[in-house]
Nucleic acid binder design. Structure first.
Lengths: 196, 196
DNA sequence: ATGGAAAAAGCACGATCGGTTTCTTTTTGT
DNA sequence: ACAAAAAGAAACCGATCGTGCTTTTTCCAT
């Protein structure tokens, strides 16, 4: 009852890699099986149906995101240092960690944006939760805390720069994308702190 | 030799609509045919193969984008007024014009970001061309023109806010997304003008 | 350690669907 | 009315999802 968990984990990461490249709905069970060195049905026994696998893959990607971006910055005190660390980790997340295919969460959000269903709902919840975290962190940028609306706006801009980075860097092949996003974010923090 | 052109146009718009919802690679010929009231093979005669249809659909979307966003602002003088009009039109493009499925160009960029091939190349060219236009417009924000690097940075931020708007508004269902993007963009123009 | 239960993986199959071709029928423009 | 274009019908082949049934591996109790 322990080997199964291991291969299940392998399936999730491998399927995640494939889904990041080909899209969540464009990854066949056969491809995943080949990629894991399993047979189609050997793989299939780990999930109830294809949608269950997609959901597991997506949730696993969310978990890995949290582990990669959030956990390492938890020890930092709330405020500018932690925000900059989050931003930096998230830049890394789109480049190093997901070298091939970009961020599965982002591409799935685009894929699911008009496909109602449990998958969409689950991802929606996780993303909204993350947005709340960012807004809260943004409020902690000054003491006394920033106004909620101001922090929400700043979180919107922060997220926009990350999306801009992914777009410019990944698809457009712009080598300066990382620096551009970083600079835009620093200026955002500067003026948000100043406005207090 | 004239009816064919008409139905070909109908196919492109209908297929574009479907592709915006299901993804460019997840739209089957059968679905498109049904949606157009054609038979699979009747539809197929309009293109050499499926990839040719995908390319035609994507290029048609790009043409419609230019007609919707760029053409109506051409009569305005370069500068702030034109930039604001462009931004506003692009916000509209993501909501009104593409009510179901969001912007095909954006979702295709995500889908194609790791699929080398003629499709990716053609879209890449069109998007880079548009980025150049935006940078040029941004330079015209002040007289004498802004430094190229400064304008490029501003164009990056402008594009980021549009992506942020699409993400927050479409997938996250945030009703304030439009206002947030607009406000962020106004502030961007303000400080870019001021920095001169 | 070892034998047997339970889990994991393999094999083969059926049904379906997707892109493509060929051939035929309808429609269109002159 | 006739040639050419446009659309339809039927079928092919390959890939894919999902399902038994069988075989191997793992693990635990004796």
């Amino acid at each position: 009852m322990r080997k199964g968990e291991a291969t299940r984990g392998r399936i999730l990461t491998e399927a995640g890699r494939l889904a990041a490249v080909n899209g969540l709905f464009n990854t066949s069970l056969g491809d995943v099986a080949d990629c894991c060195g399993l047979s189609k049905s050997g793989l299939f026994k780990h999930f109830d149906c294809k949608e269950a696998m997609q959901e597991a893959v997506l949730m696993d990607a969310c978990d890995r995101f949290v582990a990669f971006v959030w956990v390492p910055v938890q020890h930092l005190p709330s405020g500018r240092a932690r925000l900059e660390a989050i931003f930096e980790r998230q830049l890394d997340w789109e480049t190093v960690e997901n070298a091939a295919g970009g961020c599965l969460i982002m591409s799935s959000a685009v894929e699911l944006d008009d496909r109602p269903g449990p998958l969409r709902d689950k991802l929606h919840d996780r993303l909204q939760q993350w947005r709340r975290v960012l807004t809260r962190e943004m409020m902690a940028l000054s003491d006394p805390p920033l106004d909620y609306q101001v922090a929400k706006m700043a979180a919107f801009e922060m997220n926009s720069f990350l999306l801009g980075h992914a777009s410019a860097g990944r698809f457009m092949g712009d080598g300066d994308a990382r620096e551009a996003a970083r600079a835009a974010f620093r200026r955002l923090l500067d003026r948000t702190e100043r406005a207090d």
